[in-house]
Design a protein around this nucleic acid. Structure first.
Length: 741
DNA sequence: AGCACGCCGACT
DNA sequence: GTCGGCGTGCTC
């Protein structure tokens, strides 16, 4: 037996697997994720390493393979656990072990290393000059070079010495032994935010107290689990998280708080700072690699109790993890779009199980997955239905755009919305106009009757292609675009097209006196564009903010009393099975933006399908009703979470070969399904059929049980590895995908 | 990163 | 010859 080992993860050149023979006495004892001691390099010095795989074949010159020495009992603590998590991720989501390890372990980068090594001159100037003459005389060039530089500047960065002066470590060591220089390292931690701890005697509502108590009773008894806090906007979820974390931290354990990147605002962070002082740290994409690494080291050394950050913060190397909080659990950014395509929710639960910690999921509009599991009893459901403040929910009007057309209004702004806008401008209150383009993929709909063309097999909208056809992204079904509506015969059928720029223009012509701000991909491209626009709007430098979904997340604008959702259908008829869920979430958030201050808010939802349950339930702010309806659809169609879906993305430069490969793969998979319940649909063309001259195809496997899909993934991975025909093809797996390819 | 190997100039 | 210093390249 042989073991794949990666040695201590510090150096780029060593960031690959080395194979070692497993001594008979350790056979059966060794498993993936363990920390071991191996002889390494010419001197066979003992080095720490991690087992990343086990096999009975030797892929290297048999005579050069060494035997591994022992299992390391000491450092088994943190990295070992994360390596085990990486192994779980590889098995769960596919890809290579190295890819998983890289997402899990903080990589020390050369110039950003935690310890900054410096070389210091120990001699005074006179002695130094004498020594320099001596070196020059003896023609010891490297030493002379270093000493000359040090006489100029007595302390030099090691980095500079080795790069610019081209002095190797051996030279420095030799001079160190002679007492001429010293090599020292200084710990420099960079802490991105400072704040002081303020104890606040907070009083909880009945619901908040109940949620905390439920969690804490279990925790004190040593019971760990996953809890879903379903709490409406304004019910005070953050205070609950903070209290739970405080109690866990008091027991000497640490907590990770995951939030969607976009919600990582100054206000959120300050709330945690006020409670945990400098025992809390933040991760975000704006931190440099070095700062990130420093945060990880602080965590590892027990210098902080709480780490806040997006998806990647899940891998904080806490020695004694007690709790993982995932706020806005339904957000799609928790799913990684790179291999391994892991979902932070599942991965958090897996990590918590491995390290005996609990997980708190929180949302005002829980994902179908989370609520489904909660209802099945896998998660504990904690509800908070009342707002802790006094403000009432906004009044919502649903406008039928088909009626508008009948009444001769062809504008994107309905009469109702125009009236309300005029009223707000008069009262000097603010307005948000929201165009939910997310997941928008050019569906075909009738402007007169609202009919949308769908796939007869998959019950998702067909996407319009430039070649005059409509296709299904799941099964590949194709049909020519119709010229009249198959429902009502109207000629007003076509692609729904509207952009934020056009809306801005229309608003400006209708209300020339209004100050309009636009926020979309174009206007936020520059650095901090996002923040600039939002703070300008918050300072009431504009009356109307027009934008895509990015305007409805986070930020509170107390003076906004009107929200207009211009075309709710855009996300409703995107081409994947999560369209309804996404629409409900976006509408709920959008409506929630209105009337956050003292004044009551109103919202207008414009749509061609006012009877669609996603829209009706969002207008009524009725999550329960939405969930019941949506889960029925998922069950009927076999979509997650009722069943499980695995997208297999195959790509290849050679198109005919790709098609052949997909057919083979499908046949092979069908042969191996044995008695397991499983369907395969496709191959279909993904949204982008070709990237950089590489063609792509997708197969979807649908199964009742998740482990059936994992087994199929493993079969397929094996199959393409041994079959030389697949050499030129790349294959990627995506479990329960959030987006269509 | 850390170690040995081999090249090169200086000195017995 | 051979000794010590220095740069290069490899590590299962």
């Amino acid at each position: 037996m042989y073991a794949d080992i990666i040695v201590d993860i510090t150096h780029e050149k060593l960031d690959r697997v080395f194979q070692y023979r497993i001594p008979t006495r350790l056979e059966g004892e060794l498993s993936v994720g363990m920390e071991v001691i191996v002889p390494f390099g010419r001197g066979n010095r003992e080095t720490k390493g991690y087992v990343t795989g086990l096999s009975d074949k030797c892929n290297y010159d048999e005579t050069k393979v060494k035997e591994l020495l022992d299992i390391s009992r000491s450092g088994m603590a943190i990295e070992g656990k994360l390596v085990a998590l990486a192994a779980w991720m590889k098995e769960q989501y596919g890809g290579t072990m190295i890819q998983s390890l890289k997402t899990v372990l903080p990589i020390k980068q050369k110039e950003n290393a935690k310890v900054k090594k410096r070389v210091r001159l120990l001699l005074d100037e006179e002695e130094g000059k004498k020594k320099l003459d001596f070196y020059l005389e003896k023609n010891q060039k490297a030493r002379a070079r270093l000493l000359a530089a040090l006489l100029d500047e007595p302390i030099l960065d090691y980095e500079l010495v080795s790069r610019k002066l081209n002095i190797t470590l051996t030279v420095i060591r030799a001079m160190e032994e002679q007492g001429i220089v010293a090599l020292e390292s200084e710990q420099v931690y960079r802490n991105p935010v400072k704040g002081e701890r303020i104890e606040n005697g907070i009083t909880f509502t009945e619901e908040q107290r109940h949620a905390i108590q439920r969690f804490w009773e279990d925790y004190e008894q040593g019971k760990r689990g996953t809890y879903l806090i379903y709490g409406v906007t304004g019910s005070g979820k953050t205070e609950v998280y903070i209290e739970m974390i405080r109690r866990v931290a008091e027991q000497g354990k640490q907590a990770i708080v995951l939030i969607p990147e976009i919600a990582l605002t100054y206000q959120t962070v300050m709330r945690f700072y006020r409670n945990f002082g400098d025992r809390v740290s933040i991760m975000n994409s704006r931190l440099s690699a070095g700062e990130r690494y420093d945060q990880m080291m602080r965590a590892k050394e027990g210098k902080i109790d709480v780490m806040i950050g997006p998806r990647s913060a899940l891998f904080t190397p806490f020695p004694n993890l007690g709790l993982i909080v995932m706020d806005e659990e339904h957000e799609t950014t928790y799913k990684s779009e790179q291999v391994p395509r892991y979902h932070a929710r599942e991965t958090a639960i897996a990590r918590a199980e491995m390290e005996h910690a609990s997980v708190i999921l929180g949302s005002a509009t829980p994902s179908l997955e989370a609520m489904y599991r909660a209802k099945k009893g896998e998660y504990h459901l904690l509800e908070m239905r009342n707002r802790s403040g006094m403000q009432d929910m906004a009044e919502v009007y649903t406008v039928d755009l088909r009626e508008e057309l009948k009444n001769g209004n062809r504008s994107i702004l309905s009469i109702k919305l125009q009236e309300l806008m005029a009223d707000r401008l008069e009262k000097k209150e603010q307005i948000m106009l929201f165009l939910n383009r997310r997941g928008y993929a050019g569906f075909i709909s009738c402007r007169e009757c609202g009919h949308v063309i769908k796939c007869p097999h998959c019950d998702v909208s067909l996407s319009s292609h430039k070649n005059g056809k409509m296709v299904c992204h799941y099964c590949g079904f194709e049909e020519p675009k119709p010229s009249v509506c198959p429902e009502c015969g109207s000629r007003h059928i076509g692609e729904f097209r509207a952009g934020t720029q056009q809306i801005e223009e229309i608003v400006k012509t209708l209300f020339p006196q209004a100050r309009v701000l636009r926020m979309d991909m174009d206007t936020t491209r520059q650095k901090d564009g996002h923040e600039k626009i939002l703070s300008a709007f918050a300072n009431e430098e504009a009356d109307i903010l027009v934008g895509t979904q990015m305007i409805v997340k986070g930020h509170d604008f107390p003076n906004v009393t009107l929200v207009g959702v211009l075309a709710a259908d855009m996300s409703l008829y995107s081409d994947d099975y999560r369209a309804g869920e996404r629409t409900f979430q976006l509408l709920t958030q959008a409506v929630g933006r209105a009337g956050r201050g003292t004044k009551k808010g109103e919202a207008v939802i414009q749509t061609y399908s006012p009877e669609h349950y996603g829209i009706v339930t969002a207008a009524e702010q009725d999550y329960e009703a939405f969930y019941e309806e949506e889960i029925r659809y998922r069950e009927l169609m076999g979509y997650p979470p009722a069943e499980n879906l695995l997208a297999v993305l195959v790509s290849c430069e050679d198109e005919p070969l790709l098609e052949k490969g997909c057919r083979y793969l499908k046949e092979y998979a069908l042969r191996f399904r044995k008695d397991a319940q499983m369907d395969i649909i496709g191959p279909a063309s993904p949204g982008i059929g070709k990237i950089n001259d590489v063609y792509r195809k997708v197969l979807y496997l649908k199964a009742e049980r998740y482990d059936t899909l994992i087994r199929m993934k493993n079969y397929m991975e094996q199959y393409i590895e041994v079959n030389p025909g697949f050499q030129k093809m790349r294959i990627q797996f995506d479990f329960n995908p959030m987006n269509v390819f």
